[in-house]
Amino acid sequence: MGVSIRQGSRLPGVDAAPAVPPDRRRGELSPQAVGSGRLLRERFSAALITLVSALVGLLTLVVIAALFLRSLPILRQHPLPELVTGTVWKPLAGQFGFWPFILGTLWVTVLAMVIATPVCLLTAVYLAEYARPSTRALVRPLVDVLAGIPSVVYGLFGVLLIVPFLGDDLAPFAQRHWGFLPWLSPGEVSTGYCVLAGGIVLALMVAPVIIAVAEEVLESVPAGAREASLSLGATKWETVKHVSLRLALPGLVASVVLGFARAFGETMAVLMVVGNVAQSPRSLFDPAYPLPALIANNYGEMMSIPLYDSALLLAALMLLTVVLVFNLLAEAVVWARKRAGQ
């Protein structure tokens, strides 16, 4: 009985319910049992379990409410559109423009997804459709290990290997040979601490999430559908392309959306390699300053500056909102699938 890191089984499956006798549900017992305190224990435990679950169920709302209340002060003084589109970040002068940070987050996250999506989906297809059971049994725990590696370790890996490679080798090379491409030529000398470094590290970090969900989705494609295609003379890949991928498409989209949400809020690893310069990056070799890094770098010292703390919690609220919306989207896709399957 193993526990996977996979995020619960989001897919319809065999889920038999035990027949709990109705009297047990209502908490009625024979008179003898009532006297021994069993009924009391049953009712008390059921109440406690329900209470704790209700609290946990409400926790998301509590987090949203708390962050919203604490970011109200800045929202009262500056309208939200002005904060989002403002480009000047000078807390001492009372100017809070989030645009460079939002842009930084988007650059790093989108880049990570561009790198991770094809590689992860191909890996998931390989594991679900092609790999021998023994290969699968070897690869799957390793992917789970990748999911468990702490983010600072990813960050340090980026600092030790990827940043020097980008700064010393790839950036000068790109400057010499790719000058005509708008996003690929570094404007000035790149230190290696840049958007691309953040994207590569993040791509590695979200890989296990995408692979795990995508693989699960692919495995839920009924074998009969595959066999029908194979029996008509289709090759293995044609079957994958026309049957498995098509049937699994919503779930695969959900896996990528979940990966995106994960990448969007990742803090420490990105913070360590992305350079943290509050500007709008113009190429992959420019530094950026994503929203989570903004919160992490400044949260300790904001107490003396008015509205600073409120501004940072607003940043946290923005992160939370985007992540929740994306998670709900993934959830909705899976629900629609479930509904259709029934």
Binding site: S53, T60, G265, T267, I295, V323, N327, E331
Partner: peptide
Amino acid sequence: VRMSLDLLWGIPSIVYGA
């Protein structure tokens, strides 16, 4: 409750910190 857990699972740890 299950959906709430999924959402909580996705909340970035920096937000939990804040």
